[in-house]
């Protein structure tokens, strides 16, 4: 688990957390996380409830500080640049590192506008119709909605809404897409579609996904990080490896208990 120090844009690691600690006020939620995220791979973060999976994920695009008011120690490198350097613009960070949330949250606007808005605010100058179509095709939603682009995004089913949210994230052409339990609010068929979609997307994007569904992590991801809370109730990554090793031959006893269902 030793990695070479990445060079700008050349390292195989897009994102890398080093000695990362995250605080809510005085409460330390996450401590000492080292986590590399490889380019064009899917990295899953698993672990029991309350172990700080989502907190860690949201630290990757500086979403935490907006709503929770968190403080951070250590660093997260994105293409070799520290995301938490005082000179870094969080808006710029979220532009490069997109996010899909646990509950589908389309804007109460038309399907078309849901996708076009993000591109527009980032000064997209090309053909908007083509961009919308392209994003909807990439998120495997085009055939279902091509005749009703003017309809409200809220009129879609839950699974469709979530794919619309993915399309919306694609429209600003991010490098990384963070997914916070993207299928937890969906039925099994919709979940399967999202998983297939992720396999499709990883050709062009790097994906980090938080999930509490172990089968999902085993099926869909290339790497898996196992998180657990320590004695001080702070979450940390206890094991990180290729997914099949985590699930077949974990080194840590706690990981083994968790993935075989003996946890708790």
């Amino acid at each position: 688990m030793t990695q070479p120090i990445p060079q700008n844009g050349t390292s195989k690691f897009v994102l890398e957390a080093r000695s990362l600690g995250i605080y809510y006020g005085n409460f330390r939620a996450v401590i000492g996380v080292h986590l590399p995220v490889e380019r064009n791979k899917i990295t899953a973060i698993i672990g029991p409830s309350g172990c700080g999976k989502s907190t860690l994920l949201r630290a990757f695009n500086r979403m935490n500080e907006l709503f929770a008011g968190t403080r951070i120690e250590g660093e997260i490198n994105f293409e070799g640049q520290n995301l938490y350097d005082p000179s870094v613009d969080p808006v710029e960070v979220r532009y490069r590192i997109g996010m899909v949330f646990q509950k589908p949250n389309p804007f109460p606007k038309s399907i078309y506008e849901n996708i076009a808005w993000g591109a527009r605010i980032h000064g997209f100058k090309g053909n908007m119709d083509d961009l919308v179509e392209s994003c909807l095709r990439q998120s495997a939603l085009w055939d279902e909605v091509k005749d009703k682009l003017k309809q409200s995004g809220l009129a879609l089913s839950g699974g469709q809404q979530q794919r619309l949210c993915i399309a919306r994230a694609l429209a600003v052409q991010p490098e990384v897409i963070l997914m916070d339990e993207p299928a937890s609010a969906l039925d099994p068929i919709a979940t399967l579609k999202i998983e297939e979609l992720m396999q499709e997307l990883k050709k062009n994007y790097t994906i980090v996904i938080v999930t509490h569904n172990m089968q999902q992590a085993a099926r869909a991801s290339d790497y898996t990080a196992m998180m657990m809370i320590n004695d001080e109730r702070a979450g940390t990554v206890i094991e990180f490896d290729e997914t099949n090793r985590i699930f077949t031959n974990p080194k840590d006893k706690r990981t083994e208990d968790y993935v075989t269902g003996r946890f708790g």
Partner: peptide, 15 residues
Amino acid sequence: IKWVETDKRPLNLRR
């Protein structure tokens, strides 16, 4: 749509 090869895009995160 020309999808940018995002890793070759200039990276400027400055405020």
